[in-house]
């Protein structure tokens, strides 16, 4: 071990040992800091640089400094604007659904019995299937002509639903497919969080004769507050990036109805080779994401403080 033991503090000069202690603390950050500087900070700075420049494809490097021109162009781009709105709609629909469903399923999964472990392991599978494949399989399942869902509904006399027939229902279908893929993650974290709750509080509530609803509302939820908030933030940061499911099902359509911002940026960069504009857009998205994340974290913190 290269780091001085804590005991050293009692002996040596105060300041030197204090400095050494700080060093020993930062030693923990070092591997992650080095790695992230190389694979996260550097590429981000590079993108930032491109976003303020014109991009020369022939040398594949940023050339002339153009200030905020790319940003202005991005913000004036109608499709970019609409993709931001579409992303917002998707997040507003998907996140609450996934969090509520995730915690609900977690509660069910936590029932103590022998098959619990197996169920949890099986529950991982939707996360593992490549998005291209799961998107395609869902498209197959939801097809009004061949799909097993509409066939099943047909048995009960429900006429075929065209799951990607218009803008609204396409978004609903996308949210459903994404929920199928993402809820297991929320549920597994939530299951763990629920297990960690102290049981005696609930016993006390039961003894007091509190209704199930009352227990949930005034006992469980406040205690789960921080965990729900944290799960929400992790899931939110995952959901912002989602576009692969859409690529595999609606390709952003109908019209621009499911054209989320990450899909749009991906296209700008990879299909249209517009690297300056796409970099500016990526930075805009990052800024918005950062601000909202801070808002969420502050919100959850003030929530915690109040409870």
């Amino acid at each position: 071990m290269t780091v001085e033991p804590l005991r050293g503090r009692i002996g040596g000069t105060r300041r030197a040992s204090h400095r050494r202690d700080i060093l020993s603390k930062w030693a923990f950050m070092l591997p992650a800091a080095l790695l992230l500087a190389a694979v996260l900070a550097y590429p981000l700075l590079h993108t930032l640089r491109i976003s303020f420049s014109t991009f020369d494809l022939a040398s594949f490097s940023p050339t002339e400094w153009v200030g905020f021109a790319n940003y202005a162009a991005a913000l004036q781009n109608q499709t970019f604007q609409s993709s931001l709105i579409v992303t917002g709609v998707y997040l507003v629909l998907a996140l609450p659904l996934q969090i509520v469903l995730g915690f609900g399923i977690a509660y069910l999964m936590n029932a103590g019995w022998r098959g619990r472990g197996l169920i949890r392991a099986l529950f991982l599978i939707p996360m593992v299937v490549a998005p291209v494949v799961s998107g395609g399989i869902w498209k197959m399942i939801l097809d009004p002509l061949w799909g097993v869902v509409d066939w099943f509904l047909g048995l009960f006399g429900v006429s075929a639903i065209d799951w990607f027939g218009n803008a609204t229902i396409s978004m609903v279908s996308i949210v459903l497919i994404d929920t199928w893929r993402s809820v297991p993650f929320v549920a597994l974290i939530a299951a763990a969080a629920l297990l960690a709750l102290p049981k005696d509080v609930f016993e006390a509530a039961k003894v007091d004769g509190a209704s199930w609803w009352h227990t949930l509302w005034s006992v469980s939820l406040p205690m789960l507050g921080p965990i729900i908030a944290a799960t929400f933030v992790v899931r939110w940061l995952g959901a912002v990036k989602m576009f692969d499911i859409i690529l595999a099902t609606t390709n952003g359509g109908p019209g621009e109805a499911t054209n989320v911002v990450n899909l749009f940026i991906y296209r700008q960069a990879f299909q249209l080779l517009k690297f300056s504009e796409s970099s500016a857009m990526a930075v805009i998205v990052l800024v918005i994401t950062t601000i909202l994340t801070f808002v969420f974290l502050l919100g959850s913190k003030s929530l915690e403080d109040r409870l």
């Binding site: 499709t79 027939g165 218009n166 803008a167 952003g252 359509g253 109908p254 019209g255 621009e256 109805a257 054209n259």
Partner: peptide, 11 residues
């Protein structure tokens, strides 16, 4: 592609 799709869907 955007506009063709919008017309196809009757938007």
């Amino acid at each position: 592609a955007d506009q063709t799709s919008a017309a196809v869907q009757g938007q």
